[in-house]
Amino acid sequence: MGDHPRMSQFPSVNFTSTGRGLFSTEEILELMRGECDRARRYAYPLVLLRVCVDRLEQLGDLYGYESRERVLEEVGGVLCSVTRESDMLGCIIDSQFLALFPHTPAEAGRALAERLTQAAGRLAFHQGVAEVKITLSVGIALREAGVGAQLEELFSESAQSLELALAAGGNRAEVYSAPARSLTSAMKAVPADLEEIGAMLDSMLSERVQAMFESVGQKVPDFGGHEQEVLARAVKKMEEERELLVSQHREEMDTLSRRMEKLAEGLEITEEELRQALAHQGFDPGVASLYRTVQGLGAEDADEDLKRAMMSKIFEANLELKEERGEAGQPG
């Protein structure tokens, strides 16, 4: 790889026993971007492989970190052995390798991935008495000649195809294929008969209504083809009931809010009284108020008229006493 025109700009990592280096993540991405630009400009095909060692983490857990490193080194060696010097190899987050093959058509790319998995299958690691088999999963992203290649798209497609390979059990290569287009886009693409679509929707609606009745164990009534109208009325009724419930809840909330405000007012008054009581350092008018109530000195009184008359009598008796004392106190 040291012959690559731009490779000398990056310090390569001596990773493999063959003496060929692998680019770091930043380096390989930079190189790939340049290669994509050239592929678009000169209209040549590209293949991007994303390679992953199956169950590498478990291997590391079972046999230690050094075993894991040995496996990666051997796989890196295999990658180097099946690729040309003009191809670009790099690693991302350790356990995955990226390999970009310029001037490589789709069939060649698939064959390359196949060779890679087969070569890895021949690798064998001995850990004590145990022999550990190595398998690879490969995600493939392709661009035919003349189809514009964007690095981000290739990168994403290779990741998705690798996920497919891993999900299928590993030890295989998967090619990225675009998902089926949506119904909307299909409708846009294919001019459709609106009446036919309307009939289809009516049928779906009818089935849906039927399923609803069956789900609650009731016989499906005959709507006479007026399912939409029935549904509209049902929805209207439900909305009315919902409005009623909302209204009731709102009233309850209003009542609760008013009660909370009233309690808060009472709390403020009590807190103020407590504050004043504490400020008086034990001389507590609050206690006096309570005492007056306990002693029956409150404002409410059933015998108010009688008591007023009695107070007048007591006053008159005392006034008489005062006047007598005044007269007695007069000189002469």
Partner: peptide
């Protein structure tokens, strides 16, 4: 206690006049 209650119930003007 009863005398206190009488004192409390006695109109203010009566107290003033005495």
């Amino acid at each position: 206690n009863g005398a206190l209650k009488i004192a409390h119930d006695m109109p203010e003007e009566f107290w003033e006049r005495l």
